[in-house]
Design a binder for these strands. Sequence first.
DNA 1: ATAGGGTTAG
Length: 801
Amino acid sequence: MSCATARRVISSTRSCVTDPHDYIRLLEACTQSNSLAHGQTVHQHLVKNSYRDSPVVLDKLTRFYISCHQLRLARRVFDTIPIAGKKHNVILWNQMIQAYAWNGPLNNAVELYGNMIENGVVPSKYTYPFVLKACAGLQDVEVGKEVHESVKRDGLESDVYICTALVDFYAKCGCLDDAREVFDKVCGRDVVTWNAMIAGFSLHGMHGDLVRLVAGMQEAGLRPNSSTVVAILPAIGEANALWEGKAAHGYCVRRWFHGDVVVGTGLLDMYAKCGCLSYARRIFDVLGVKNEVTWSAMIGGCVTCDSTREALELFDRVMLEDAMIPSTVMLGIVLRACAKLTDMRRGRRIHGYTIKSGSVLDLMVGNTLVSMYAKCGVIDDVMVFFSEMAFKDTVSYGAVISGYVQNGNAEEALEVFRKMQLSGIKPDLATLIGFLPACSHLAALQHGACVHSYCIVRGLTADTSLCNALIDMYCKCGKIDMARLAFDRTSGKDVVSWNAMIGGYGVHGLGNEAVSLFHDMQAIGVKPDDVTFIGLLSACSHSGLVAEGNCWFAAMSRDFSILPRVEHYLCMVDLLGRAGLLNDAYNLIQKMPVRPDVRIWSALLAACRIHKDIELGEEVSKNIQSLGAEGTGNFVLLSNIYSAAGRWNDAANVRTVQRDKGYKKSPGCSWVEINGVIHAFIGGDRSHPQSTLITKKLDELLAEMKKLGYCAESSFVLHDVEDEEKEKILLYHSEKLAVAFAVLSLSPNKPILVTKNLRVCGDCHTALKFITIITKREITVRDASRFHHFRDGTCNCGDFW
DNA sequence: ATAGGGTTAG
């Protein structure tokens, strides 16, 4: 019966159909012509005429609905067929499962397969590939393995189709060994089998195996097709293997694949990931057919390659000219661009759009929004949005945690990390890497060490970035030996590992160790970068290694082709200035190829204070003020220079100017971790619950200190007050409060680590030496520039900071 | 074929 005839029959006969075969023929015709409306009319008729009990008719009806992509209707009809009527109709089960496997929901495919087994329906060899496809999509290893067992039981282990599906399933689930095992047993592997295997290795970034596989495929006499190329391109991009990328591109041109949208998109994405944005753009421009994915890949490539403006231009163009409706992927890419540019206005606009389109509900888009607000520094908006997210995963928490860390609020990061664990979400690698800097910042050793144990238990310590974060954490928590241990145990050290360790030695005043490690680094063949030299030069500076510092500063551009940045000059000015070579420091500033900024002059001013050079101090101070910079610290330094020289009037004048200009000294804050809790103190602060005890302890210590010859160094006080008052003000400096609290809270044999946001004050530095004698404790203070290890009345900085 | 949070220095 032709379609036209069928249609005529349907419209004329209405209720005259009596033979079920007529229905069957009608439904077949509707299926062929894909006419949903007619088929539904037939459906109504057969319901009226009680043919709904005929399995044969219902079989046809189910297939009709499947072919019209009406899966729900198909399923409803399918379910009305009694099990007896479909027990031997595997083909119908297969069709339903196939439909689900192709169009979703995938778990329906798996569920239906379960029903089938439960009801004693024997699967055919066509059943397995569909179920496996669903398992691959769902990453359902358990069911997939059951299917594999059935395949073995049915003796289908060498069937190419089934085995290809098995390889694909294992590969997508990351069970590459299983995939390999099946793959090796297949007789008559074809291109699709190879592609499944190749795609699996590509998906899991196993670059080396991938290259061998593609070669193996060609040796077996099979030609890679466009799917093969498309599968390997992401891996090439990820490995930054430009040379192989170009080879793949050449192959595409030879085989005439390069005009294909999917291949073209893959190629341009690969080039962008390899950092060759211009190649990517050329492919994009000549590609005849572009779809939404092509545009997304191009725009995302621009973002990756730091051509963020170009990315937004392209986005505007496609939105305006092509009136494209952006997908969630596209929106995520554009939000990342906004984050990179800290373009919050556009970010908010896109956020509005995602609300309208419903994409906000997409977890990835939501997480990108969190990160966008965090990178723009509006942490309040981060929290509002984050708390409203219906679903949060470890990435959401990771974005908030690192958002807090990036905005200098490590304590909040600690709190969010705790909440995350309470809500039952396990931190993954990236979350931990993002969280560790919070521990580093706070010198929260107990939290940091806890993370370390967790990483060991979870087997995450093979990751270089994680080890780097651990090295840094131990350095910043004062545990330089633990840092070195972590460093030594880091396999695959990269430049960041070396930099972290060298910088760590530097801030601990272990300049020689830093230099020696720098030599090791070169011996092993790791190329130092600009950060390495910042760490190395500042290490020399903290340890007074003038000759070494000069030598490496000269070498960095000469032997390593790294042009010194302002930061490097800063280290050198610091190095020379501290060593008392004020003229050399001044000359270096004069020779700088870039204009010296406030930081440079401040470093020199600090040196002037140490070496009591009033004349140069005044000149430097003028330079600073002429830059229009509101460096409060500079007023303090200059005033200190005058006070130290006994020129009290000049010192007072500086303070008056400072006050008139409205500059306030940023408050000094110190903190200490006791049993995993951070206790913070501000100078003169009495808000701590144990304030009375702390004050009492400090008074006791003061009395003892005086007996040993301590005398308050009032040049470190800015206020115009009497000497006894000055003594009190100094006594309640934040670092002393924190130390006193630690003395009260920690058992006598435990070392104390106090952290301060500014540089430690000179009087406190002296006082702490006395306190180590009185309490017989080791006290470490980490200030804004380095560690001070106090022990038996001395500090390892040699009063040289 | 396109997408989210992460390590060093300043």
